[in-house]
Computed example of a mutant assay.
Amino acid sequence: MTFNITVEPSGRSFTADPSEAMLVAGIRQGIGLPYGCKDGACGSCKCRLVSGTVVHGPHQSKALSADEEAAGYVLTCCGVAQSDVVIESRQVTEAGALPIKKMPVRVSSLARASHDVMVLRLQLPAADTFQYHAGQYVEFLLRDGDRRSYSMANAPHTQSTAPQIELHLRHMPGGKFTDHVFGSMKEKDILRIEGPYGSFFLREDSDKPIVMLASGTGFAPVKAILEHMRFKGIARPVTLYWGGRRPDDLYQQEWILAQAAAMPQLTYVPVVSNALPEDHWSGRTGFVHQAVLQDFPDLSGHEVYACGAPIVVESAKRDFVAQAQLPTEAFFADSFTSAADKL
Rank of each mutant, 00 (worst) to 15 (best):
330 A>M: 02
51 S>Y: 08
69 E>P: 01
208 K>Q: 03
136 Q>C: 02
137 Y>V: 07
137 Y>T: 06
336 F>P: 08
255 W>N: 06
286 G>A: 10
178 T>W: 05
142 L>N: 08
262 A>I: 06
36 G>L: 05
97 A>E: 15
309 A>W: 04
295 D>M: 03
256 I>G: 09
58 P>Q: 06
207 D>F: 02
302 H>G: 00
170 R>L: 12
247 P>M: 10
223 K>L: 03
220 A>P: 03
49 L>P: 02
245 R>H: 12
117 V>H: 11
277 P>E: 11
343 L>A: 12
236 R>M: 11
251 Y>I: 11
232 K>Q: 14
263 M>L: 15
330 A>I: 00
284 R>V: 11
221 P>N: 08
264 P>W: 04
149 S>E: 06
301 G>L: 00
147 R>M: 14
119 V>I: 15
142 L>M: 12
44 S>M: 13
61 S>H: 09
244 G>E: 02
91 Q>Y: 01
131 Q>W: 07
314 E>Q: 12
187 E>G: 02
208 K>N: 05
150 Y>H: 13
77 C>F: 07
327 P>N: 09
63 A>G: 11
215 S>F: 01
74 V>K: 07
4 N>E: 14
47 C>N: 13
28 R>D: 15
30 G>N: 05
333 A>W: 02
197 Y>N: 02
22 M>P: 12
142 L>D: 08
168 H>E: 07
281 W>E: 07
201 F>L: 00
287 F>D: 03
104 P>D: 15
225 I>K: 08
188 K>W: 02
14 F>L: 15
276 L>V: 15
217 T>E: 04
131 Q>V: 05
307 C>Y: 02
212 M>F: 06
203 R>L: 04
